[in-house]
């Protein structure tokens, strides 16, 4: 780190706390109107108009737990260097800074976190956005071609 303290946004999903690097975020906002994304995995709420650009909104609760996507809570817009993606979460709790000497531990496998933050005697997983992005890219690339019509037209072609 370049001398400046890292800051983390603490948010909740179905009552569980998660942390995210503030530097991975561009904006926090209220849920905007969304429009359907054809062929997209069901975990997407839709696509929103973000300053004139189409931006897909992933429901993180739905992605982690498989519930149907919801349009309440808050929307986290990721920094454009990471990708064109917005995440729906339940609530934003606070922003903490590791200036107070936060304990950051290596996290066990799973749930898109490599590390966790010890805060108020609670172990909060720190979201590894790159893992999440890689998984999403994979899902979207393979998700499209599975439809019935694919085989149908292939058959017609022969």
């Amino acid at each position: 780190m370049s001398g400046r303290a890292r800051r983390f946004l603490i948010f909740t999903l179905r009552g569980d706390r998660y942390a995210m690097n503030v530097s991975d975020l561009a904006e926090v906002m209220e849920p905007p109107p969304t429009f359907p994304i054809p062929k997209a995995p069901k975990t997407f709420l839709g696509v929103m108009n973000f300053h004139g650009a189409p931006l897909p909104v992933l429901d993180l609760a739905s992605f982690f737990h498989g519930d149907p996507p919801e349009s309440t809570g808050r929307i986290l817009i990721l920094d454009h260097k990471i990708g064109s993606l917005a995440l729906r979460i339940d609530t934003v709790e606070r922003i903490i800074s590791d200036i107070r000497g936060l304990q950051i531990q290596q996290q066990d496998e799973g749930s898109y976190a490599r590390q966790s933050i010890m805060f108020n005697a609670e172990k909060i997983p720190l979201l590894a956005i790159d893992l999440l992005m890689a998984e999403l890219e994979d899902e979207i690339r393979t998700g499209g071609g599975k439809s019935e019509s694919f085989t149908e037209v292939k058959a017609e072609k022969g």
Partner: peptide, 26 residues
């Protein structure tokens, strides 16, 4: 507007566009 990651992995779309009424279309 071409899509960024991850939607750019979706095959068969040139990108998105915003219609006059703010609706986003593919």
């Amino acid at each position: 507007k071409p899509f960024g990651s991850p939607l750019n992995r979706m095959k068969g779309f040139l990108g998105g566009a915003i219609l006059g009424d703010g609706q986003v279309i593919f």
